[in-house]
Amino acid sequence: MALPALRIDTHAHVFARSLPMAAARRYTPAYDVTVEEYLARLDAHGMSHGVLVQPSFLGSDNSYLLQAIARAPQRLRGIAMIDAQCEDTQLQALHQGGVVGVRFNLVGGAPLPDFQGAWRDTLTRVAALGWQVEIHREAGDLPLVLEPLLKLGLKVVVDHFGRVDPALGVDDPGFRYLLSTGASRQVWVKLSAQYRNGGSEGGAHFAGQAWPLLRQHLGTDRLLWGSDWPHTQHESMTSYADSWRRFETLVSDEADRRRITGETAAQLFQFA
Rank of each mutant, 00 (worst) to 15 (best):
A24E: 14
F206Y: 15
L91D: 05
L123R: 01
A40N: 09
S18H: 14
D43G: 13
L39N: 02
W225C: 09
G262Q: 10
R120A: 15
G203M: 05
G130W: 00
P73Q: 04
G46S: 01
Q132I: 14
A139Q: 07
P55A: 07
P212D: 09
G78Q: 07
G108C: 07
G140Q: 10
G162E: 08
F175I: 07
G130F: 00
G108K: 12
G97L: 04
F175V: 06
H231N: 09
F271Q: 03
Y64C: 12
G203H: 03
R17Q: 15
V187E: 00
L146Y: 03
V157T: 05
L191K: 02
I79R: 00
G226T: 04
R258M: 10
G226I: 01
Y64W: 13
G262I: 10
A70L: 05
R41S: 11
F269S: 00
G202A: 06
R185N: 14
R41N: 14
A44M: 08
D43V: 11
H160C: 06
I79D: 08
E201W: 03
P29M: 08
T10S: 10
Q116P: 01
D256M: 04
I69S: 06
V164Y: 03
D141H: 15
L52I: 14
D256S: 11
V102K: 05
G199A: 06
A16T: 13
K151F: 01
A272G: 13
L66S: 07
Q96S: 15
G203C: 06
A68C: 15
Q186P: 10
V133R: 02
I69V: 11
A110Q: 13
E134R: 11
R259K: 14
L112W: 09
R125P: 07
L214H: 06
Q194K: 10
Q96Y: 12
T264W: 06
M21D: 05
L224T: 04
R26F: 10
M47R: 12
D32G: 02
L214I: 03
R176M: 05
A84C: 10
R176K: 14
H160A: 07
A241P: 05
A207C: 08
D9T: 02
N105P: 03
G199D: 03
L213G: 08
V187P: 08
A193P: 05
R71G: 06
L106Q: 01
V170F: 05
L213V: 01
R41K: 14
W131S: 07
G219E: 07
G97K: 07
G182W: 04
L154W: 00
P230G: 06
F161T: 08
Q186Y: 00
V35E: 02
P20R: 12
W119D: 02
H231C: 10
G50F: 03
E36D: 15
D88T: 11
Q270M: 12
L152C: 10
T34S: 15
E36R: 15
V189Q: 06
S243C: 05
L91H: 01
F115Y: 11
A24D: 15
G130K: 04
Q74F: 11
V133H: 01
E138R: 08
A255W: 11
H11E: 13
